[in-house]
Simulated scan of single mutants.
Amino acid sequence: MLKKKSFKGILMLSMLAVLLFAAACGNNANGGNTNNETGNATNSTTNAPTEETVKLSGEVKVDGSSTVFPLTEAAAEEFNKEHPDVRVPVGVSGTGGGFKQFCAGELAIADASRPIKDEEAAVCKEAGIEYTELSVAFDGLSVVVSKENDFVDHLTVEELNKIFMTGSTVKTWKDVRDTWPAENILFFSPGADSGTYDYFNEAILDKAGIRNDTAITFSEDDNALVQGVSGSKYGIGYFGFAYYEENQDKLKVVPVDSGTGAITPTYDTIKDGSYAPLSRPLFIYVSNKELERPEVKEFVKYYINNIGPLAGEVGYVALPDEQYATEAAKIQ
């Protein structure tokens, strides 16, 4: 009897242990599922792409005006600090050279120191290149002579016309003003592909064209013009205000009289337009197709939103804040 009872007791204890073990396994299984679901949710949240984790890369190719070059270069350098994987090479082939590449679909952005010409716009249209024009800053085209020149105090528009117009017979400074020395003038000018050339030709020469003889040196490189004028006591040239600002230790800027008195280019006279007729807006032209690329759109947005403060740093005059807001709206 004792053996039977002991066997039954052992059997019942065994069955109870099995039941307890099964219950424990069931609870662990449910707990495991809960943990896995939580883990999956956590991983899903962690791996989801966010705006902060998206990195831009690629290339934003720019070329064109040597005058606009310092602005675009400054914007590119600052942009690259935030987006180091985006390359923004900036060329200097002149406004006309930039538009040729732009309308051939070779550029994302064309730098321009004048508005696009009708014939250039027609080439772009024929090629299916749609674009957005954005104003970025003001410039005052500056007439300069060597620091050693101690007699030129100002020039009138008529005298500038006489000096630079095609077919001019002016050879010496005395030919310009009787009281000046009979020393041969060396002339320096941006090349025909430059927007600065076009602007000077229009504003000063009424589109008559710039003289082209052995006494004049043309260059698309404004730094070469700076060197030419600064190294020639009797030289004269013209280029963007920023290049004068950068080299005022060796150049003398010439006030220009357009009929209301001689005005020197400064930040204030350029911005308020009193430095006439040589105050001008500067532009970038952006391909609308290229704007669909995120790296291009972000660069252009950065450019417009930040170029105001940068303009003064590189020798140009910022647009009013409300105009930058208008330009930014065009990008959207």
Rank of each mutant, 00 (worst) to 15 (best):
I204Q: 07
G308Q: 08
F239L: 08
I210C: 06
F138V: 03
A311H: 01
S274Q: 04
V314A: 11
M15Q: 04
I116K: 00
L225A: 03
E77D: 10
G259C: 10
G9L: 13
V152S: 01
A208Q: 10
A76T: 02
T269F: 05
T34K: 04
I284Q: 01
A262Y: 07
L71A: 02
E133C: 03
L2R: 09
M12P: 00
H83W: 10
V86I: 11
G231D: 06
S230I: 06
Q332R: 05
G240N: 08
T166D: 15
V317M: 11
Y197C: 05
K5G: 04
V300C: 06
N247C: 08
P281W: 04
W173N: 00
G191P: 01
N27M: 15
G312F: 11
P294R: 08
R177S: 12
N201H: 12
S6A: 14
T172Q: 01
E133F: 05
E82S: 10
F7K: 11
T156M: 03
S189I: 11
N161I: 08
G9S: 13
I10Q: 13
P84K: 08
S287K: 04
S189N: 09
T326M: 12
A329T: 08
E126N: 04
E37I: 10
E246R: 04
L278V: 12
D178N: 15
I163Q: 00
N149M: 03
F21V: 08
G39C: 08
N201K: 09
I331V: 10
T269H: 02
A17I: 11
E246Q: 12
N201W: 14
V176C: 05
W173C: 00
V286Q: 02
V170Y: 03
E133Q: 05
A110Q: 09
T42D: 11
M1F: 14
G98Y: 14
S113E: 07
G231Q: 02
F69W: 09
G32N: 13
D193A: 13
L160G: 03
N288I: 07
K289R: 11
I210L: 12
H83Y: 15
T269N: 05
F79E: 02
Y238C: 05
K297P: 10
N149Y: 02
P265D: 08
S44W: 05
A22H: 06
A75Q: 02
P309W: 11
P70G: 02
K250M: 09
E78T: 10
N161Y: 13
V314K: 03
A318Y: 02
N288F: 12
L56V: 06
R114S: 14
F79K: 01
F164H: 00
V68K: 01
P265I: 06
P255V: 09
Y285V: 06
V60N: 02
S189L: 09
S142D: 04
Y316F: 15
R114W: 07
K250V: 15
I216G: 08
V123R: 01
D213I: 09
